[in-house]
Simulated scan of single mutants.
Amino acid sequence: MSTTKQVKTWFQIHKWTSLICTAFLLMLCVTGLPLIFHEEIEGLEPRLAPTLPASTPKVSLNKLVETGLQANPSKVIRFLYWDDHQPNTVTLSLSDSLTAPPTNFKTVIMDERTGKVLEGPNDQEGFMYVMLQLHTDMFMGMGGKLFLGLMGMLFVLAIISGLMLYGPIMKRFDFGMIRTEKSSRLKWLDLHNLLGVVTVAWAVVVGFTGVINTLSEVVLGLWQVGQLAEMTAPYKNAAPLTGKLSSLDQAFEVTRRAAPEMEPYLVAYPGTMFSSKHHYAVFAKGKTPLTERLIKPALVDAKTGKLTDMRDMPWFVNALFLSQPLHFGDYGGLPLKIIWALFDLVTIVVLISGLYLWFARNKATKAQIARMGQSKAKQIENAEILTLNSPATDD
């Protein structure tokens, strides 16, 4: 393929991938800004649990579950977990039934030292909830997630095609040039190119991890039909559970003994999507900043209280868990989050300038076609592609 055809091909790829995804990328960048600082924003919320002496003993998990269900007699418990932003609390996720859809739930927050039910905020309202839903699925569920994943892939392709166009140009010009003596369109073009190259590594990382995050339900589904099915296979033909379940405290204790370097943080009850009909699924995470994103599931027989299996997650599940904090810059504390926010703002400028350049180029091309006639349309389009970055080019 000739150089001219290569440039035209990359130009068309860059143009159309950018045009298709830009509006959605702008929305993701705007909603992503407050989400970068979600931990700091959530930290401003008042603590639900009162201050008590550090030596205050904790109520047993069995007692907490019993109290939570007594306050909600028509509900069943599906999950129990700890919220890092609300110390000294345990959260129960209740539902109308174990087979109800994931959106059917009610959270009950309890003081793990007194066993009292606390008045918590509504997690399904407010500014941060709206930002999160727009950013993850646009309130469209899994279909919205997959659509945004497609937009993320187009964004990555737009970045690659932009580099393929910008690389040959920089062989002829100084890096970072801004042709201020030329037209407004050329100044914006140079600024668009410069900012795009400066943020390229960040944009690829955030775009790629964003695509991975949109596949979370697919990834967890593969884990369910793969590793989880293998772990629960010996119980496939077992009789249904009857009577009282074994101690939840015991399930956590056997998990701690099996993985002393990890800390249990969530349990899925028997019959839920992340367990089996016969097990507590206790999920443990590492205790250090480097390992806290690596999850290990333990299956505890809900009748006998014995550990039946515990394995490391498959690589593709770990990739998902590791990509989630990287997407929002959660690995390096506030300094990294500030850098992430600055790159986000620069990317907004790149996206807006790209739209401006397309509209300006389209307008200029139409004006020339009107002056010169339709027979020159193809030549003008080719000239726009091949000479736009020439020093002699002007509007």
Rank of each mutant, 00 (worst) to 15 (best):
P101H: 00
Y166E: 01
D174C: 01
G162A: 10
D249H: 06
L157K: 05
E112C: 02
I77S: 00
K63R: 13
P260T: 08
F321V: 13
D137P: 03
F11A: 00
N193R: 06
P73R: 04
E217A: 14
T22R: 01
K182C: 03
K58W: 01
L248Q: 01
D394K: 14
L69Q: 06
L241S: 06
N389V: 13
D84E: 12
S390E: 13
F127Q: 13
M110I: 15
T209P: 07
V350S: 02
G43R: 04
L299V: 08
K58P: 02
K303A: 11
T17Y: 12
I369Y: 04
G126P: 05
V197C: 06
I178E: 04
L388P: 00
R179V: 06
P50A: 12
W340F: 15
L69D: 03
K182F: 05
H279K: 07
S184K: 08
G329V: 14
A367L: 07
G115N: 09
E42I: 14
K58S: 12
S216M: 14
A302L: 05
G196D: 02
A364T: 10
Q6I: 11
L44R: 12
E384T: 14
A201L: 15
F274H: 13
P87G: 08
K366A: 08
G115W: 11
Y235P: 08
T56E: 12
N213C: 13
E119K: 15
Y331H: 10
L33N: 10
F316D: 09
L48K: 02
P53K: 03
V300E: 08
F208A: 15
E230Y: 00
P391Y: 00
Q250A: 15
M110P: 04
E40L: 06
P260S: 07
G221K: 06
P289F: 05
L191C: 04
K63S: 13
P53C: 02
G43V: 05
I385C: 07
V198T: 15
N362M: 10
M310Y: 06
Q368G: 09
L163E: 12
L157D: 03
K63Y: 05
F252A: 00
A233D: 07
P46M: 03
L345S: 07
T22V: 14
K15Q: 08
T89P: 01
K106W: 04
I159C: 08
M138E: 00
L186Q: 12
N237P: 00
T347I: 12
D301C: 03
L98K: 03
L322Y: 04
W16Q: 07
K287Y: 08
N72V: 08
R113L: 02
K145E: 10
F79I: 04
M138T: 01
R113A: 01
A203F: 01
N104M: 09
K287N: 12
A233E: 09
D394G: 07
L19F: 13
I338E: 04
A23V: 14
Q368I: 09
I77C: 05
V219D: 00
K378G: 09
G43Q: 00
E253F: 06
S18N: 05
G143I: 05
L266C: 03
I212R: 06
L132I: 02
T91S: 15
E261M: 11
D111L: 01
S353V: 03
P314D: 10
N104H: 13
H279T: 09
T51M: 12
M372P: 02
Y331V: 13
